[in-house]
């Protein structure tokens, strides 16, 4: 085997290791977590808080 071929093989093997390691690392790193953020405005309609003493029909 010539020196050039040996270096080519070495580079190929090295790059395979680097690529597969970085792929594996990307898969194993924990995902970036986010929490649900409050929405500024309610999409439905609003009603006054003075209603709250009225009995409701909900069970539970």
């Amino acid at each position: 085997m010539t020196r050039r071929k040996f270096i080519q093989k070495l580079l190929k093997a090295g790059s395979t290791i680097v690529i597969s390691t970085s792929w594996l690392a990307k898969k194993t790193v924990p995902r970036k977590f986010v929490r649900a953020v409050r929405l500024g405005k309610y999409p439905g309609s609003l009603r006054p808080l003075r209603d709250i003493s009225k009995q409701n029909k909900w069970s539970g």
Binding site: R35, A36, V37, L39, Y42, G44, S53
Partner: peptide, 28 residues
């Protein structure tokens, strides 16, 4: 729970549809 521009948002935070101060605990 909705996705707005890639951010998870809770629509109902601070917006209850029902509030009632006088339920008996036995009703739960």
């Amino acid at each position: 729970r909705i996705n707005i521009d890639g951010v998870l948002r809770t629509v109902v935070y601070g917006y209850p549809c029902s509030l009632y101060p006088y339920d008996p605990v036995e009703k739960k």
